[in-house]
Amino acid sequence: MSVAAGNCIDELNREWGVLRHRQVPADWPEGGTLGEVFGRIADDPDRLLGQLLARQAAGDRLAARVVLQAMLGKLVLLAARDPQHSIAEYVTECWLQICRYPLARRPQRIAANLALDTRRTVWAGEQPTVSLDPQVLNDLAHSAGPDAITVIRNATRLGLIDRSAAACLVAVYCLGLRSHEAAQRLSISADLVRWRNARSIRRLAPHAAVLAAA
């Protein structure tokens, strides 16, 4: 894995270094911190991953984030064996697989299923369900506010995205830069630009009404 490709994993691990100390919501079936829940997954993977995916299906993105963290090791191995696709492509696709995982139909071997589905989709060359076309954020802006830059500013102020994610969105969706051009300006990899933008769009879309009120 190249240093540039590794930036995606570094970013996730830095984020997890903060999240792991957070207490889980009171209505989670497992108590403790996110890190403690994560640490129990290896001993009872299908039960705990199933609980997290069920919460994700109800709109709990924090639960989905724990599942993604649990999958990172497998994703790194898959990308290391694949000379054609980047780790960021695997991470983005795995996130999408987590968000649409058919838990009722496939309650067993969840981690293996996620890894296989991710690899199959990446190798098939399918486009992710989250479009990275600049029109996406413009459409969100139309429903949430006067323009894309206002949406990004409001989202940052409300804590829906951080400044690094906002910078990537501005570069691509407001300045019209391509991913590699934005990467040069921000001193990161193009894969990380694409991954941050895909994650941010998924995070912002459900909050259009909140952004409009802001």
Rank of each mutant, 00 (worst) to 15 (best):
F38Q: 05
L75E: 02
L52H: 04
L78T: 02
A5G: 08
L48C: 03
P29M: 14
Q97F: 02
P102S: 08
G73P: 01
A58K: 13
C99M: 13
A58W: 06
Q69L: 02
L49K: 03
H21A: 14
Q97N: 09
V91N: 01
V18H: 13
E93F: 10
P29N: 13
L103A: 06
R47V: 09
R22C: 13
W16C: 09
R47N: 08
C94N: 08
C8A: 15
R47L: 10
R81N: 02
E11L: 12
V37R: 00
V67D: 01
N7M: 15
A54R: 13
Q56N: 12
P45G: 02
A42V: 10
V24E: 11
N13M: 14
Q84V: 04
L96V: 10
E30M: 13
R40N: 02
P25A: 14
Q84W: 02
L62G: 08
A54I: 00
R14M: 11
Q23N: 12
C99Y: 06
F38A: 06
V3H: 10
W95T: 14
G39L: 05
C94Y: 06
G32R: 12
L52K: 04
A57V: 05
W16I: 07
H85R: 13
L77Q: 12
W28Y: 15
Q84R: 12
K74W: 03
V67R: 01
S2F: 07
C99D: 14
I87T: 10
Y90T: 03
R61L: 11
R47M: 08
A58M: 11
A63F: 04
E89K: 10
A42C: 02
D27M: 10
M1F: 03
E36A: 12
G31E: 09
Q97D: 05
A63P: 04
A57K: 11
R14C: 08
L75P: 06
M1Q: 04
G6C: 05
G17I: 11
A26V: 15
E89Q: 14
I41L: 00
L52V: 07
H21G: 15
L78H: 00
E36H: 08
E36C: 00
G50Q: 04
M71L: 09
I41K: 01
C8R: 07
S2Y: 07
Y101M: 09
A80K: 01
Q23R: 15
V18L: 14
Q51L: 13
G35K: 04
A64R: 03
L96H: 11
V37Q: 02
L34Y: 10
N13C: 09
L103R: 07
C94R: 04
V24H: 11
R55D: 03
T92N: 09
N13R: 15
G73M: 04
V24N: 10
G59V: 07
C99H: 10
Q23T: 14
L72R: 05
E93V: 14
R20Q: 15
